[in-house]
Design a protein around this nucleic acid. Structure first.
Lengths: 330, 330
DNA sequence: TTGAAAGCGCTAACAC
DNA sequence: GTGTTAGCGCTTTCAA
């Protein structure tokens, strides 16, 4: 601590040149004698000179920072998205401010305002559901990219997951491994993810000339629901041989209930989840085959699209990132 | 988008005053006629004026930003810490840059450098283990606070968890609920958390005139290890009536193995974990009683200590944040 | 009560 | 090849 910070003026003085020259030397601009350049660089090194980005920003109008607003308290969904975004943004030498709106529109507006005051070059808004959301503002001075929860605004840039595709990947795997009597247990009907996955499952089965065993079981994103739904399912359809679950937690509950009902997994019944959430999928017995929605990829794509928009070539619309199947033992 | 950004000069022009006056009006500085103030405010409103923090920073030397460097890819540990830190920093009107070092010292240095170039007012370094770590740098121009993984530097500021206290909370609960033959299953011996929790458990039992059943079982942070250790434990100590597990994932494996071995929980055997990791603790059967290490509180404390250090009153040393017991049904 | 001017740390345009 | 100067958007003396 306490180390006084050297400015470019200090570096120039020590190297015996003017600040202009020092600037050129350090930025490789202009034409200077190699010896001068070296002398300046040496001085900078000795003084541990770190150029002030804030002064530079004032001049160029760019800060090389972006804001990421999550509605999600850095939870299950935001985290991989943030990671992906940081990957992409880091490549553009950008640093990200993190704001947690906790699903509160007031907080969101507050954060947005603070980010704009800080002159971020762009903003990523990450949601935790795939339901469309209202735009964070109109006529903003910087580009915004929506991740996971797409914006309802026509001309906005959004990146989201392929819900129907995810269902197809799951169902195709079950069919490919010989399952014919496939049921679907999923989350709340109020979530568009649940509805889309159910619709996707029905579609995919139809493509194989099959139908879902019973209606989709809408419930909650929990292990307990997975267990309960399976116990009920076995009463009406004891011959079920495949279960596509709308989430890994549901799938884990399902495997437990099936195992405890005496079914041998995966021989008698195949189970596929969605999420590829390590702590759940890997610890299940057997470890879960599941669809990874590519959240990190969504974040990466969002970062890339934001960089492009900042560079003046925005790509409006909803960009869909495909998921992929992770085959384990279930 | 595309909305041109109004500067204070625009506001001043529209209000028919000088920039100096506009500045004073908006910041409540100087003495101005109330009518002038109102006029300026109105102009600012109409132009959606958002003062540039970067210009202000250049002047004041403070950016009201901090950097958070996590070694943890925003995982299980960083997340609550970040939340807590954001809580504290938000109160100081600070915004946080997020950097993920992925446990790579090179990346860490790189990020630190970039943060310093951006003139952050301070830095939080968050780890994922409680083992002491090397300081991130010496003689830095801004204060640094270490969260979870304390710095080995004597004069640095660190905030970490109370590992022995956590073990005491767990053991006391088991004893209070009538358990006398208590075993301990935990993570790798190479982690100081494992060793400290084991030592704490032994100590706490001694305070009750009891001894651990067998040696502590060091292994890995996984459900599989919890299951395996319990199965072995039951062979040598079938009369065990309490298991203190060094992590919720271990505890969950332990409950599964106990239940499947025919033990009724929590009547015959009590199980206590550490972490209070929702997805694991709540889904276990029965839901886990566990020690919450207070990670969010650690983050909050780190944020507070950083603000204090920035304000010129650093509190060096290792600050220990107490955990608390979360009683569920196990 | 208000305006004019200097300056924060840096870069870029232009002189020398 | 190097130095000088103006100016990015704001706040803050100081003078009017």
């Amino acid at each position: 601590m306490a180390a006084r910070r050297a400015g470019i003026a200090d570096v120039a003085a020590r190297a015996g040149v003017s600040v202009g020259t020092a600037s050129k030397a350090l930025n490789g601009r202009g034409s200077l004698r190699e010896e001068t350049r070296a002398r300046v660089r040496a001085a900078a090194q000795e003084l541990e000179f770190a150029p002030s980005t804030v002064a530079r920003s004032l001049l160029t109008g760019r800060t090389f920072t972006v804001g990421i607003i999550t509605t999600d308290s850095y939870g299950r969904f935001s985290i991989p998205i943030m990671r992906g975004a940081e990957d992409a943004l880091g490549l553009g030498e950008m640093l990200a401010f993190l704001c947690d709106s906790r699903d509160d529109p007031i907080r969101e507006q507050h954060h947005l305002r603070r980010l704009l005051e800080r002159r971020v070059d762009g903003v990523i808004v990450a949601g935790r559901r795939t339901d469309a959301r209202q735009p964070v503002g109109a006529n903003l001075p910087v580009p915004v990219v929506y991740a996971l929860a797409p914006s309802a605004g026509e001309l906005d840039i959004s990146v989201t997951s392929d819900e129907r595709g995810a269902a197809r990947l799951a169902v195709d795997h079950l069919v490919r491994t010989g399952r014919r009597r496939i049921a679907h247990i999923t989350g709340p009907h109020s979530h568009s993810s649940s509805r889309e996955r159910a619709a996707g499952a029905t579609q995919a089965l139809a493509a194989h000339g099959l139908e879902l065993v019973g209606e989709p079981w809408f419930g909650s994103w929990s292990e307990a629901w997975g267990r309960f739904a399976v116990s009920q399912l076995l009463r009406t359809h004891p011959d079920v041989d495949g279960v596509f679950c709308g989430a890994d937690v549901i799938a884990r509950g399902a495997t437990d209930a099936l195992r405890e009902a005496g079914a041998s997994l995966p021989m008698q019944v195949g189970v596929v989840g969605v999420d590829n959430w390590g702590v759940v999928a890997e610890a299940a017995r057997p470890p879960l085959t599941t669809v990874d929605l590519g959240l990190q990829e969504i974040g990466r794509r969002a970062g890339e699209l934001l960089l492009e928009a900042i560079d003046g070539t925005p790509a409006p619309g909803i960009h869909i990132v495909p998921g992929h199947l992770v085959v384990r033992e279930s």
